[in-house]
Design a protein around this nucleic acid. Structure first.
Length: 602
RNA sequence: GCCCAUGUAGCUCAGUCGGUAGAGCACACCCUUGGUAAGGGUGUGGUCGUGGGUUCAAUUCCCACCAUGGGCUCCA
């Protein structure tokens, strides 16, 4: 959703939204004199503007701001651009410290309004309309009459750090949305409504997949039986795929002595997101935030030969990370997580094959799940972060980043690059996806690690009998169970394919007289490994169907006197399709086929 | 962690301008035995997020905390 789209920046819609942001800023300044204004760009579905306000505002205040915006729009004001010198700009914005800071950045050349480096030193320009003047490079509409006032709406108030840095002051951000036509706005609001219906937090409760409990703690999900089934099916899938790809499975404890994380180098980079240590008999123990150091220990357990490489150690390891309270988000961001983890120990000349093998695994999974909307992102280090966020070895950073870039390019896998997104030990390919409410997450990840092998003194004996250091690939194609299930709930809107569905078949007797037959069918299905249940409640058949439908059970077997007498079933699928009087064996074959093939169709 | 908002039954919500609360669904029981998305009745269920304060009296007002939601920051 926030995928780069060059056309958007050139579109009329972009101009409308950018201009709406200016108009909103004008209205806010009128209502709240003394407001310091900062920046207000268009974003994917609208725009925002960040202010430092002299007083707090609430959701209700948005109405009057919105009303005033419509008046301003109705004034048919022209947007006028003016190119000026830095000194002139400083004069215009003498009361506006944030603008002065921006002018500083522009003048030095180098920094745009987000503090991002620019290639060329930009000209300094103003855009004026009505009484409002902003430091701005445009573009805008020519006249406010090009904005349809009925297609503009203010959405929400939020906090945002100045320049996105949590050390800076928290500003007030107002989000709005704007469209070319009122119908587009209506459509967008409708989409938001629809998205809410497939929110995994809502469906997770309705479909009895998981809950959170205050006494257990935030970010610590409890998996209900239906969630347990989803997890086990995913795990089964992962094991099959990994076995085929030559992985071996290991198991490691949930906690270890502090020494391990000192050794791995995690503590200085990671301590903040780790649960605090527990101390026993003078020794500190941590619950593990990741599995890699333990896997490294397994690699180092005895001398290794090049003949063993690549060595692929896999584990669904449960990790605990103390994510900051505001970062928690349903299942997508939790504090206890089961990672689809593996570490591949490879010689340098095996790197590309292995790295791309993992990417291949991604593609296989995504095809199976029908996941099409994602972006692969090459996450790079930043020079400024060396020694702080990132291991201080620029040479190896550049080298490994190049290796990944080369591997991806030569295999024609599309990707984007992003600065300052790497792991502390190396660059990675992250697969970015979006939750239904539009929040971006990394689903899968495929990481290079040049730092930990050195710290753990990992080595293998090469062909020439000399010791060599392996590279490590950290990978999690199925993410964590938590995030993956959260994502899949939304992806399928809760209507899981048969192989994943917690309840695959529900038998619905029409009257009590068929209860016995229903139970008999249920147990036959179960005997064949099909997850079936019989609804023996005293509801009417219609209500039983409704309940099964609400639970998104793929198959309903409706049986009345006729079916019982003939030893047959009537099938109603989740999609409403119906097939009457079929032999149970025929239905059984169909279900088992879908399960074995992990088919998407019913 | 930061900004803002919210917190009433398992769920979705109403309500009390301070006198300890109500609906629908769910659940239990009874009646109903019905052909592809809700049959009817009765009933159970809440120290109104938690802890303080003000008050004769607090679910309601004030404060703190906790949790959740929308963002920011961060991330599998």
């Amino acid at each position: 959703m926030s995928q780069p789209n060059q056309k958007y920046e050139e579109s009329q819609l972009y101009r409308i939204r950018h201009s709406a942001a200016h108009i909103m800023a004008q209205a806010v300044l009128e209502f709240y004199p003394g407001t310091k204004y900062t920046i207000g760009p268009p974003v994917e579905n609208g725009f925002y503007y960040d202010f430092e306000l002299p007083e707090q505002i609430t959701q209700e205040d948005l109405e009057k701001i919105e009303k005033r915006m419509r008046q301003i729009i109705a004034g048919h004001h022209e947007f006028r651009k003016e190119v000026i010198s830095a000194d002139q700009a400083r004069k215009v914005f003498e009361d506006q410290p944030y603008k002065l800071e921006l002018i500083e950045g522009l003048e030095k050349g180098g920094l745009d309004e987000y503090g991002e480096p620019l290639d060329v030193k930009p000209e300094i320009s103003l855009y004026r309309h009505d009484t409002f003047t902003d430091l701005c490079r445009g573009p805008h509409v020519e006249n406010t009459k090009q904005i349809n006032p009925a297609a503009v709406k203010l959405m929400s108030i939020a906090g945002a750090y100045w320049r996105g840095d949590e050390k800076n002051k928290m500003l007030t951000r107002i989000y709005g949305t704007a469209w070319e036509k009122p119908d587009d706005l209506k459509h967008y609001l409708k989409m938001l409504e629809e998205a809410k219906k497939r929110d995994h937090r809502k469906l997770g409760r309705e479909l009895e997949i998981f809950i959170f409990d205050d006494e257990v703690g935030p970010g610590l999900p409890l998996w209900l039986p239906n969630g347990g089934i989803l997890i086990e099916e995913l795990e089964k899938l992962a094991k099959e795929m990994e076995e085929r790809a030559g992985y071996v499975r290991v198991r490691t404890p949930n906690l270890s002595k502090e020494d391990l994380f000192v050794h791995s180098g995690h503590l200085p980079y990671y301590a903040e997101s780790m649960y605090p240590p527990m101390e026993l008999e003078g020794v500190k123990y941590y619950v593990k935030p990741m599995n890699c150091p333990m896997h490294h220990k397994i690699f180092a357990a005895r001398p290794r030969s090049y003949r063993e490489l690549p060595l692929r150690l896999a584990e669904y390891g449960t990790c605990y990370r103390y994510e900051k309270s505001g970062e928690l988000f349903g299942l997508m961001r939790v504090r206890s997580m089961q990672m689809n983890d593996a570490h591949l120990y490879v010689a340098e000349d095996q790197f590309e094959d292995e790295f791309m093998g993992v990417i291949g695994l991604y593609h296989e999974y995504f095809k199976l799940f029908g996941i099409e909307k994602y972006v692969m992102r090459l996450s790079l280090h930043s020079k400024a972060g060396l020694g702080k966020k990132y291991v201080d070895n620029e040479r190896l950073w550049l080298k490994t980043e190049d290796m990944v870039r080369h591997a991806m390019t030569s295999h024609n896998v599309p990707f984007v690059e992003a600065q300052d997104e790497a792991a502390f030990y190396g660059p990675k390919i992250d697969v970015q996806i979006w939750s239904v409410i539009g929040r971006e997450f990394s689903l899968a990840t495929n990481q290079v690690d040049f730092a930990q092998p050195a710290r753990f003194d990992l080595k293998f004996v090469n062909k020439d009998g000399r010791e060599e250091m392996p590279l490590v690939i950290h990978r999690a194609p199925l993410s964590t169970h938590e995030r993956m299930v959260g994502f899949l709930i939304e992806h399928y809107a809760g209507a899981f394919p048969v192989w994943l569905a917690p309840e695959q078949v529900r038998v619905i007797p029409i009257t009590d007289a068929q209860n016995e037959y229903a139970v008999q069918i249920e147990s036959q299905l179960r005997a064949e490994g099909v997850r079936a249940g019989a609804d023996l409640s005293s509801e009417r058949m219609n209500a039983k169907i409704r309940n099964a439908q609400l639970f998104k059970v793929p198959y309903m077997l409706v049986i009345g006197a006729n079916e019982a007498a003939a030893g047959q079933v009537s099938l109603r699928a989740r999609d409403g399709s119906q097939q009457n009087n079929i032999p149970l064996g025929e239905f059984m074959a169909r279900v088992k086929d879908r399960i074995i093939r992990r088919a998407a169709d019913l």
